[in-house]
Every structure is written in structure tokens, then in C-alpha cells.
Design a protein around this nucleic acid. Structure first.
Length: 567
RNA sequence: CGGGGCGUAGCGCAGUCCGGUCCAGCGCGCCUGCUUUGGGAGCAGGAGGUCGGGAGUUCGAAUCUCCCCGCCCCGACCA
């Protein structure tokens, strides 16, 4: 392909709107253009990459035995009501209607449609297991789209769904997908890691996210360098702390704290770090209040709390707080608190000389010795994991890294198969719900993640497997007939090997071409110009190396293939 | 949704505080011609703007006031 015959427009300046490298480079290198917030047009160069990632995904899904289908984006309301998610999805789901007033969802995901399909197509255990997938556009009205295609309103996703006879089969399907995902990301040139994840609105019991470690990632991952434990911080368990510290012997003391409610304000007032405070949060779970104690510098993990309480927990309103503690918001404390379930996080056990609310307006207590003043029978794991916390599976300490979530696999169980009727007759003629799993890959986000992991200050460095072209041929002074002839000769030699080549035939100056070459990041660069006319040697350079090779044209194809093998 | 910032040519920006000297300017890009071609070329000529939109104040508005829209960043109930 000649550069002048395609649409590649690079930009010299960083776009003012882009913050992170992938977003900046995707705009500068001309991979995409923004239409509106969270909405992007893929230009030819970007689309080629997207398609290569799709192809890898497709090949590995097919290899794992999954079957490709294509489902509608528009989905009737009634289907979503069956699963209870017409409401549960809330504002993230975009909705529309026909001129007749029939309400439709713009699919944010496809559990409902696929399960309905299977309900209609499958009736016997003989037809299972089955694993269906598609690569399609998803719509999510993100609260705050950002970072280009990293978090956008409309994006390309591979979503797959497995249906099995029993738990053992579902485990097998899950494992197959997990392994397929490892292969997919490896083939895309990504260093990705699987981490334990929260199941969130999807429901289900087990789940792993595939994370690409990156400073700019939106997710935080807790990892244990000692044993390899890895989990999203939303999910990460924390091991019980070490032995309790020396407690204070000082007497409990009431201190007037007019109008001081937050740990931050009180920390200044008492000249004590937040870690000296025992924060007391009143939650409501299933209509019942619960008091949660946690050290002032830590945060409650509401998923852990919900699991412990057996119901989703939300922070209580002022009225409930007053009813439970006798004080307005800001003055709750564990000492003397009765008539409410009290749950204490591990971190509280480490507070030696604590400060808490006094359960009276404008009053706090200091010199709290938790063992003496309100003994806690059992400390629990209720906090969001933080660096230095004890690993739940060994004696190591957790570290926090940031990552980009490129894939997510769930064991769903029978939530959707029951509500949508995906049942089959087993050998005994008894009706059973299929056991489901679901598996997603953010295809467009994967492209951005690849750039996050493969770039330098000059531009993108594509891994060969996903590069838009494998070879970039630069002709310096392309109007000189000898140069044009050499370029033509090289093009023929390389296309004979099935290599996809981009020929920069623009009559721009050398600097422009070299800089654009670095920016768009094609793995192998060939240069023919004055030096070639003098020596008859073609300059060959890999984007991921500084080494320059000079070889005669007939040796170029072999060298190119060797360099591509290392890209 | 809360807070902050921004909106002037395709891209990056100056001008706005303090209204007139701006029927708006700079760099890059774009078009024509000639020269040039190994790390963002030179000369000459040229095109391109409802200054985000609307209403208002004023003799006069990119600039002041009000309303609206768009975009970006941070945060989202932690007592």
C-alpha cells in the first residue's frame, strides 16, 4: 500500500485533550478520531490493528471449541425484565424505543439474548455443552468516559457464554476460556496477569480479570510478591494482622469536639494521625443497621461487608444514625454502643490508644483501649486492601499495582438460565438449568493497552502480530527514478513472502518520514535513498532496536522475517 | 451528579484581566510554482475563522453580564 493512497494523517503536536500515552498516540498516529466524548471513528490504520486483535481472539476462541454467532444490539425490554436487569442496570444502560413505543435496550452485554437463544434451541443434555461467542459493539453510558477507547460509550467487545450440564463441566469450560485468554493476550504481545475479581452486577461465584500492568490503569491490583497471590483490590482478601500492640493504660477521656465530624478535621484537632482513630460507620443491610469499625486511615470494602452480612450494605442516613447512636452523623463510636451488630476490621486491633466518637453530639473519646472499653470477640476482614497488608495465602505483604482490565471471566451458575428458561432434560428426563459461564474481552481497549505497554517517547512500537503493516518502506527522494525503481523492487520481493508493506512515497523531507515512521511504529523499517544509490545496500531497522543493518536487496526478505520474529 | 479547567482556522496556541489601535494574529499543517530530500527543508505566492451558541450592556464586544451547549481533569456519600 502506498502512503499517498491511504488515509494516514499524523499530527505533530500532542492533542490537548489526551492525557495518557495510548490516547495521545492513537490520535497523533492517526489510528482514530473523536466524534464526541467517548465516541471514536477508527481510521484505516487503527482499524487494521483492531482487526488483527479480533482475528487472534477469533482463532483462539475457535480453537477452544467456541462457536461464533452475531446477536442484535437492540434488545427488547421484556427480556431484561425477566432477568431483573432492566432496573438493575440503571443509568449505564442506553435505552431507545421504536416509533410504536416498544422499549429497547442498546445491549451493554448479552447474557439475556444468548440465554434466551439457548432456551429456545437446547432441550436435551445431548446438545450440551455449548459455548457461543460474538465480537460486537457494546453500549454503556459511562458516568465519565475517559482516556480515548480505554473507557468509551461504545466499544468493541468479544463476549462468550458457556452452557454446561453440571458444575464439573462448567469448571472445565471456565478453565478452557481462562487458558484461551492467556494465549490471546500473549499473542497480542501483552504481558497480562489473571487476578481474582469481584463478580459485581453479573452475579456468580468465581471470577478472574485479566490485567495488563500499567501505571495509567484504572484498576488497582493487590499482589503478593512472595506467593503470587493476585486480586483486584475490590476483591483482595487480607490476612489477619500480627499480634496486638501494647494497649494504653490511660483513662478513657471525653473531649468536646464541636462541629468536628471527619477524620481529617479531628486529626488536626487532636494532632493525631488518622491511624489513631477508630472510624465507626453505620450501614444498612437488608433493612437492618450494623456498625462497622475500621481504622481511620482505612476504607471499608462494601463487597466484603455485604458477603459478611448476607445482603448489600449501604451507608445509613442521618435519621438511622441518630436512632442507632443517639448522635448525628460524625460522632458514632463503639464504646457503649448497644442494640446493633458491631463488626470490626482487622485494622482496629492495631489501634493502641484510640480516638472514637462518643455517641453524643460534639463529643469524642480519647485513650480508647479497645480490649478494655469495648471488647471485640472477633476481628474480620472488611477493608479494601492496601500496600503492606498481610497476604491472605502466605505470610508475605501485599503490594498494590495498577492495571488495565482487558478481559474478565465469570462462573455465572444458573442465575440467567433459571430466569430465562435455559433448561434441558437430563438422562432421566428431569429438567435441569444449564450451568453458565461468561467471558469478555475488551477488544478496542486491548488495542489501547498494547500501546500503553509498547511505546517510547517517539511513538508506538507495535508487536509484529498486531502491527497494521509489518514493513514500512521509506523512499527518500522518491521522485528519483532509481529510488522509485528500488522501492518497486523491494515491494515485489516482500509481497512475494506474503508480507504486508506500507510504502511511504510522499515527497516529504527525510526528517518528516523518519519521525512519522517512529510515531506509527511499524515493526521493520526499510530505507532507500542516497546511500542506496551509492552503495546498493538497503538500510533495515527494527522499531524496537537501535541497530541498523545494511544489506543488498536480495537479502532483505530474510532479514525482515528474522526481525519480525523478534518484534 | 459535585468540584475545577478549557472552548479563537485542520492541529497547537497568543489576544480576554483593562472594550476601540483586531472586518482577529502566530507556529505547524494545507494549496500553487521553483529549488531541495538520511532525522520535523528554503524562497515566492495563496486559501482557510458565524472568536462554542443565544440574549443583553454599549456609539462600539473575541474582550463586560446572563443563560445554554460542548470538551477535559479530579472526586462521588468513609462520619
Amino acid at each position: 500500500m502506498k502512503w499517498t493512497n491511504t488515509l494516514i494523517s499524523t499530527q505533530r503536536d500532542d492533542p490537548q485533550e489526551a492525557e495518557i500515552p495510548s490516547h495521545r498516540l492513537m490520535l497523533r498516529a492517526g489510528l482514530m478520531r473523536k466524534l464526541a466524548s467517548g465516541l471514536y471513528t477508527w481510521l484505516p490504520l487503527g482499524l487494521k490493528v483492531l482487526r488483527k486483535v479480533e482475528t487472534i481472539v477469533r482463532e483462539e476462541m475457535d480453537r477452544a471449541g467456541a462457536l461464533e454467532i452475531l446477536m442484535p444490539i437492540l434488545q427488547p425490554r421484556e427480556l431484561w425484565e425477566k432477568s431483573g436487569r432492566w432496573e438493575a442496570m440503571g443509568p449505564i444502560m442506553l435505552r431507545s424505543q421504536t416509533h410504536g413505543g416498544r422499549e429497547l435496550a442498546l445491549g451493554p452485554t448479552h447474557e439475556e439474548v444468548v440465554t434466551d437463544l439457548v432456551a429456545r434451541e437446547i432441550s436435551s443434555y445431548r446438545q450440551l455443552p455449548v459455548n457461543l461467542y460474538q465480537i460486537n459493539t457494546k453500549f454503556r453510558d459511562e458516568i465519565r468516559p475517559r482516556f480515548g477507547v480505554m473507557r468509551s460509550r461504545e466499544f468493541i467487545m468479544k463476549d462468550g457464554y458457556s452452557f454446561d450440564l453440571d458444575e464439573a463441566g462448567a469448571d472445565r469450560s471456565y478453565r478452557l476460556m481462562y487458558q484461551a485468554y492467556e494465549r490471546i493476550f500473549r499473542r497480542c504481545g501483552l504481558e497480562a496477569m489473571a487476578v481474582e475479581a469481584d463478580t459485581g452486577v453479573m452475579g456468580g461465584k468465581e471470577s478472574h480479570e485479566f490485567m495488563v500492568p500499567a501505571e495509567t490503569g484504572e484498576d488497582a491490583i493487590a499482589v503478593c510478591p512472595a506467593c503470587g497471590y493476585a486480586a483486584n483490590v475490590e476483591q483482595a482478601a487480607i490476612g489477619a494482622g500480627s499480634s496486638a500492640p501494647e494497649r494504653t493504660a490511660e483513662k478513657l477521656e471525653e473531649v468536646a469536639t464541636p462541629g468536628l465530624r471527619t477524620v481529617e478535621e479531628l486529626s488536626g484537632f487532636f494532632s493525631a494521625p488518622p491511624s489513631r482513630f477508630i472510624k465507626t460507620l453505620i450501614y444498612l443491610a437488608g433493612g437492618k443497621p450494623a456498625a462497622v469499625l475500621i481504622r481511620g486511615d482505612r476504607e471499608v470494602n462494601e463487597s466484603k461487608l455485604a458477603r459478611r452480612l448476607g445482603a448489600a450494605a449501604v451507608l445509613a442516613d442521618g435519621e438511622t444514625i441518630r436512632a442507632v447512636t443517639g448522635a448525628p452523623l460524625g460522632f458514632a463510636g463503639p464504646v457503649g454502643l448497644t442494640g446493633v451488630e458491631v463488626l470490626a476490621d482487622y485494622s482496629v486491633a492495631a489501634v493502641a490508644d484510640g480516638i472514637t466518637g462518643g455517641n453524643r453530639e460534639d463529643l469524642h473519646l480519647r485513650h480508647v483501649n479497645i480490649d478494655r472499653d469495648c471488647p471485640i470477640p472477633e476481628y474480620l476482614d472488611l477493608a479494601i486492601a492496601a500496600a503492606g497488608d498481610r497476604c491472605p495465602s502466605c505470610s508475605g505483604n501485599l503490594a498494590i499495582r495498577r492495571g488495565i482490565e482487558v478481559g474478565h471471566v465469570f462462573k455465572l451458575g444458573t442465575k440467567y438460565s433459571r430466569s430465562l428458561g435455559a433448561v434441558f432434560n437430563d438422562e432421566r428426563g428431569e429438567e435441569q438449568p444449564a450451568i453458565m459461564g461468561c467471558y469478555g474481552i475488551g477488544v478496542s481497549r486491548t488495542v489501547a493497552a498494547i500501546i500503553e505497554q509498547h511505546h517510547d517517547e517517539k511513538g508506538i512500537i507495535w508487536p509484529a502480530a498486531v502491527a497494521p503493516y509489518q514493513v514500512l518502506l521509506l523512499a527518500l527522494a522518491p521522485d528519483r527514478p532509481e529510488v522509485a525503481a528500488a522501492a518497486e523492487d523491494l515491494t515485489v520481493r516482500l509481497s512475494g513472502r506474503g508480507l504486508d508493506l506500507l510504502y511511504d512515497d510522499r515527497s516529504a523531507s527525510a526528517g518528516v518520514k523518519f519521525n512519522d515512521a517512529d510515531l506509527i511504529g511499524i515493526p521493520v523499517r526499510l530505507t532507500v535513498g542516497k546511500k542506496f544509490l551509492q552503495t546498493g545496500l538497503v538500510e533495515v531497522k527494527a522499531r524496537n532496536s537501535d541497530e541498523l543493518h545494511a544489506v543488498p536487496p536480495e537479502e532483505v526478505p530474510d532479514l525482515v522475517e528474522r526481525l519480525l520474529g523478534q518484534a
